[in-house]
Simulated scan of single mutants.
Amino acid sequence: MKISVDGSEAATTDGRPARVTLTIDITSDTDDPRGYLWGLAVRGDLAQVLRMYGQGRHITPQGPADVWDMLTAAGRVGARIEQVIGDVAWLARDTYGRSWGEISLALDRPQPTVRRLVERIRTEYADLGYWRDAGGLHKADTPEEARRRAMARIDELAARRTRPADE
């Protein structure tokens, strides 16, 4: 994925370009294999969310229909972002062995919230037959096997945390 930014010659009072063109170059096979970004773009959700993000807390809808469009776009994008946050937090914990404190700091969320998020994602994937360890994502023959492997990784990470420093 490549994002390029081009600004106009004219500038705002704070020195930013008066007009900016963002170009997003996506390779479908690697950057968007499930079509999430494509869907955001063609539905207009990406444009809506960027407009709302840019306006900060001073969102200015263009009428009742625009409020509905903004709300549905924010809901769809927010739900997908929350899923991504959970997936990456699980990756950080179970594959890369990052501590709860590190993940919590990165996400700017309390540790108990982060733990519940990772536990929920871990359970969802195990129910589908997947688990993670230092070697990455794996597919088990059964969900029960995936749950057993996930629990083994939890135990492994906990043991590493409680190991004396001189080992």
Rank of each mutant, 00 (worst) to 15 (best):
M1P: 12
M1Q: 15
I3C: 05
I3E: 06
I3R: 12
V5R: 04
G7R: 01
T13Q: 04
T13H: 11
D14M: 00
D14I: 06
G15I: 06
R19Q: 13
T21C: 10
T23G: 11
I24R: 03
D25V: 07
D29N: 05
P33Q: 04
G35Y: 02
L37F: 09
W38G: 08
W38Q: 09
G39F: 03
L40S: 05
L40C: 12
A41G: 00
A41D: 06
V42L: 03
G44S: 03
L46R: 00
A47V: 11
V49K: 00
Y53W: 09
Y53E: 02
G54L: 07
G56H: 03
R57N: 10
I59Q: 05
T60G: 05
T60C: 06
P61K: 05
G63H: 08
D66H: 11
V67R: 09
V67G: 05
M70C: 02
G75P: 01
G75W: 03
V77F: 07
G78I: 00
R80G: 07
V84Y: 06
I85W: 07
G86M: 01
D87F: 13
V88S: 07
V88I: 12
A89C: 13
D94V: 08
G97T: 00
R98I: 01
S99Q: 01
S99C: 02
W100D: 14
S104E: 06
L105Y: 10
A106L: 10
D108F: 10
R109I: 05
T113S: 10
T113D: 11
R115W: 15
R116D: 09
R116H: 14
E119M: 06
E119W: 07
R120P: 04
Y125I: 06
D127L: 11
L128M: 14
L128C: 10
G129N: 13
G129Y: 10
Y130N: 01
A134R: 15
G135M: 00
G135F: 01
G135S: 11
A140K: 08
D141C: 02
T142R: 04
P143W: 13
E145L: 14
A146E: 01
A146I: 02
R147E: 08
R147P: 01
R149D: 14
R149S: 15
A150H: 03
A150E: 03
M151I: 02
E156D: 15
A158C: 02
A158M: 10
A159F: 06
P164H: 07
A165L: 13
D166T: 12
E167F: 15
